[in-house]
Each structure stands twice: as structure tokens, then as C-alpha cells.
Write a protein that binds this DNA or RNA. Structure first.
Length: 288
DNA sequence: CACTTGACCTGTCCGC
DNA sequence: TGCGGACAGGTCAAGT
């Protein structure tokens, strides 16, 4: 899915586009994608004004004037695309992305009183959207166990390292992907961060030194900040709230660059499998 | 508990 | 061109 930078990019876009709008209609396909009843929808969604758009880890929250929220996980291929009254013109690079909605991947459509629409699309159907009381969001399992926000100002290298103590006997990549250790890191930014810190993804957590953790902390934050600045990464299906792709992949140093050269030492980048995920390394910079 | 693996889905790409 | 298999940005529920 979208990882933290992609979800944050969507959040920022939606904040500009939908706060203050009033929900007029809702349509969805299956109970799996949107489990709420029609009664919930009519009481807490229809007629509600959007008051805020928030993010925690990779989860988005759209707060409503009814004190309910739409809570959304995009998983691997989810998109939240806003289409206002002014659509992109024919021939515009994004024309095909937004002028053809809804399409077969559309799971939920919200229509606002001014005619604008918000589409929740999800090709693989892993993602979900549901309506719940805003005050209950912190009580759901995921929120209870999710780790700290990696880009928060008071998050320190020391705390970062301490979070890994529990996962000492697994490899560092699996631990980085564990949302209960640190929130928001996914496959792209795990690989990019480990390359930055010159740590092999198969290294066991309990063999990593304090200095290495400190470097990894700074590299991870630098990578995530750059990715947010670039509007995230678009390998396949990710687009922001306006249907546009992110440009971080233009800056990626190892992810999906197998066969190309390491920008630091010129060694050919390799792809392997770690923690069940495709993993990219420089075999010279990142030794086991 | 911590750790690993497969399941959830659809689409695409690659090799035969 | 068709077909099978591997794989794709993420979590979960099961196993050990």
C-alpha cells in the first residue's frame, strides 16, 4: 500500500479538498469494503460536514460533524480520489485517471452537496473503510498496539532503538515492517532506509550496534521526509487525492533498481527475499 | 510471547 | 496467442 508518505500525501490533499463539504450520498459495493449498515450511514454520514482529515500510521480518518469518522486503510492498492466540478481536460496526463471514475475498482463513492465526489478505489480489495464514533478510534486493536510516529519531533534515536528490544531474534527488515515497533514503514522505505544505513536486511536485530541504530534512525527519517516532500512513490496504483502520482521513485536508490548500479559504490543492485517480501540491496554496502 | 508462513484479492508480466 | 506461475506499496490469523 501506500506507506506513511503516500497516506500523508493523500491526507494533505484531502484536507484542502473536502473539509467543509457536506455529504449528500454514499454508495458502496460489498459489505467487506464498507461494513456499516444503511441505518448508520443515514444517521451519521448523510448530511454530515467534513471537519478534519487525520492520519495515524497508515490509517486515514475523515472526521464528521456528527462525531463519527470514516476510518480508512488503503492496504496495497487503495486510492482515495477526489473529483470536483472542474475535471482535467482531454489530453492532460491525469485525464484518464479521474475522468473514468467510477470504474471496476471503485468500492465506495461519496457525493457532496456541491456535486464533487470522493472515490475509494481498491483493485485488490484488501483495503477497508468504515464509519465509527470518533472517540472510539483510539480503542481499536490496531491503534492500541501501533508504535510511535517516526517523523514526530520528539521521537529520538534512543527510543527508536529501545522499540526493537522485543524483536531481537528476527531480522531487521521484518522488525522495521512491524507496525507495533514503529508506525508507517513499509517495503519501499524499509529497503531505502537500510541501504542508507548500510545494514543488510537479514541482519538479526540483536546484532545491530547502537551506532548502527542511530544511523538507521536518521536515514529512515531522511527517507520518509524526502518521500513526503515528493508526494510519495508510485510503482503501480498509488495516486494522491487528485489522481496524481508521487515522484519519490525518481529518487529511490535501491528499491526496484535491481540490475542497476548502487549510487554510492557502483556495485550492481540485487533483489532477494526477506521476511516474505521482495528486498533490494547493494551487496557491497550491505554485508550480512 | 516471538516468530514464520499463508491467506486475503485482482491484475500484470514473464517464460514456455 | 494462450496458459501457468510468480509477484505486487499490508495486515491478519494461524501454525510452530
Amino acid at each position: 500500500m501506500p506507506e506513511l508518505p503516500e497516506v500523508e500525501t493523500v491526507r494533505r490533499g484531502l484536507s484542502e479538498l473536502i473539509i467543509g463539504k457536506v455529504v449528500k450520498a454514499e454508495a458502496h459495493d460489498t459489505a467487506k469494503g464498507f461494513p456499516n449498515t444503511l441505518d448508520d450511514v443515514s444517521r451519521f454520514l448523510l448530511g454530515a460536514t467534513i471537519t478534519d482529515v487525520r492520519r495515524r500510521a497508515k490509517v486515514l480518518m475523515i472526521d464528521l460533524s456528527t462525531e463519527y469518522s470514516l476510518i480508512i486503510h488503503l492496504k496495497m492498492t487503495g486510492q482515495l480520489v477526489f473529483v470536483g466540478e472542474t475535471r482535467f481536460g482531454a489530453g492532460h496526463p491525469n485525464d484518464s485517471l479521474v475522468n473514468d471514475l467510477p470504474d471496476k475498482s471503485t468500492r465506495v463513492t461519496l457525493t457532496f452537496t456541491d456535486g464533487a465526489k470522493l472515490f475509494f478505489n481498491d483493485q485488490r480489495k484488501f483495503g477497508w473503510m468504515r464509519l465509527m464514533p470518533t472517540i472510539e478510534i483510539p480503542n481499536i486493536d490496531f491503534m492500541q498496539k501501533v508504535g510511535p510516529e517516526p517523523l514526530s519531533e520528539n521521537f529520538t534515536a534512543k527510543e527508536f532503538m529501545q522499540r526493537f528490544a522485543r524483536r531481537g531474534r528476527t531480522n531487521i527488515k521484518a522488525a522495521l515492517l512491524d507496525q507495533s515497533v514503529v508506525a508507517g514503514i513499509g517495503n519501499i522505505y524499509a529497503d531505502e532506509s537500510l541501504w542508507g544505513a548500510k545494514i543488510h536486511p537479514k541482519r538479526l536485530v540483536n546484532t545491530i550496534t547502537e551506532q548502527e541504530f542511530e544511523l538507521l534512525f536518521h536515514e529512515m527519517r531522511a527517507v520518509m521526509n524526502l518521500a513526503v516532500e515528493k508526494g510519495g512513490s508510485s510503482n503501480h496504483t498509488y495516486v494522491n487525492a487528485e489522481g496524481k502520482k508521487g515522484s519519490y521513485m525518481d529518487f529511490a536508490r535501491v528499491f526496484r533498481r535491481e540490475g542497476l548500479v548502487c549510487p554510492r559504490c557502483g556495485t550492481t543492485i540485487e533483489k532477494l527475499r526477506v521476511a516474505g517480501r521482495g528486498t533490494h540491496i547493494c551487496p557491497f554496502c550491505q554485508q550480512v
